[in-house]
Structure formats: structure tokens, C-alpha cells
Amino acid sequence: MFRVENLSKSFGNKEVLKKINLEIFRGEVFALMGPSGVGKTTLLRILNFLETPTDGKMMFNGRECAIRQKNTVMHKMSMLFQRPALFNSSVFNNVAYGLIIRGVDKKTIGKKVIEALNLVGLAGYEKQRALTLSGGEAQRMVFARAIVYSPDLLLLDEPTSNLDPANVAKIEEIIKKIRSEHGTTIVIATHNIPQVRRIADRVGILLNGELIEVNSKEKIFTNPGDARSAAFIKGEMIY
């Protein structure tokens, strides 16, 4: 579904991503794992066109993503940040946003917003101001906002890092539902190893801007192909 080839990114003299080669398959949950500051967020931001790579190319559904196709490709994906960004409006207006800018009719918007809020357990919150939601509710609301227009690809940047265990469990349940009910492909950047065990199909380990290993979850956790992957998973890595 999404392939990147020899993708590099530098900020000034600092090379943050080094010749990344990666393929994301349709319908999978792919975990991009690694310690903080190794380039996970930068890679997600490049996939979402929020950053421009210094080098390399990206292919979406078999076609190279040139800048002129940026808007077409962006319409088929969505991204969630570590801290949810909320519009200063009602929950309904927040969730409906992606549909409104796509010119969807009001009746369909109403129906889809209710469906999305049901999926994330926020039915009945439509009229509440988004800024009055708790941290966990806000993160669930942005999930509803991200999936309401049925994107093909959902990019999640540490979506549970600021949440308590109960809300982490709810978010993970939502991720599983989105995948099973909508068939959405999900890429999640995280340093939470137990979470990766619970929700991912395949895992890529990113260290110092290099994607050192991509493998199935089972392989990564039982028989990693790289000594550095093993050290990271065991928590023995010094960086």
C-alpha cells in the first residue's frame, strides 16, 4: 500500500533518517518502534506530507507520490499526534471537520459522526465543547475525527503516551476495532513494547535514524534478526 525507498531526512547538518526502505501492507497494524528521538515522528510526518524528505521516494497504492498528488493522497490518510489538537468548537464540529472539507452533505455528516462517536465510546458528547473533554476523551475524539471519513491509512504518533492505563486500554480497543471494522491500515510509532505485543502485526525497529529490522511481531519478540533489536526489546540498550 505504502512504500518508501531510500528515504532520508536532514535538518541542517543533522541526518535524522538514513536511507529508509519500508513497505506497509494493506490492512495491517505496523508498529514503528524505537527509543525517543530516533526519528519515528519525523518518518510519520514525512508519510503524511507534513515534512519533505531530503532524498528518496514514496509510493502510495503503487504510484509515486509527487508533490502535485499530495492533496489526493492526503485525502486518503489521517494522522494523530501525541497531544490531541482540538478545534475550539463542539465535539460534533470537531469530528465532522474532515467530512465538511470534503463537501459531504449534512445528513451523511450527521450519520457518520454518530457512528464514529459510537465506535470510540463518546455517543452523547456531540454538543459538548471539545476543550472541556478529559485527556482520554480528547484522544478518543480525535480518533473519531480521524476515521470518520474512512481513510485508507491511519498514522498514530505515540497516541497513548500521555494517558493512564484505563484510557490506554480503551485506545487500544479502538485501534483493534478500526482495523477489524473498517479495514484501515495503521502505522503506530511507539516506544511502548507491551503495547506493540498487544496490537501490532509487524514491527520495524528504528535506531539513530536507521531502520535496523522489519519483521513479524512473533519473530521480533522471539528471535530478532539484529543484536541491537534484541537489546532494545530486553531493555538493555544504552543510548
Binding site: F49, N71, M74, S78, L80, F81, R83, Y97, I101, L155
Partner: peptide, 21 residues
Amino acid sequence: PLSIIETVYTLGGSEKDAVVA
């Protein structure tokens, strides 16, 4: 916040949508 403008883009919005938001 910049995150509001970036959210518009991540939801498929254009630069015009970002200005309106």
C-alpha cells in the same frame, strides 16, 4: 497552535482550509 494548522492538513485540508480554521 501550529498543531491546529497541521491537524487541518492531516485531515486532508488545503491551505485555504488552514486559513479558515
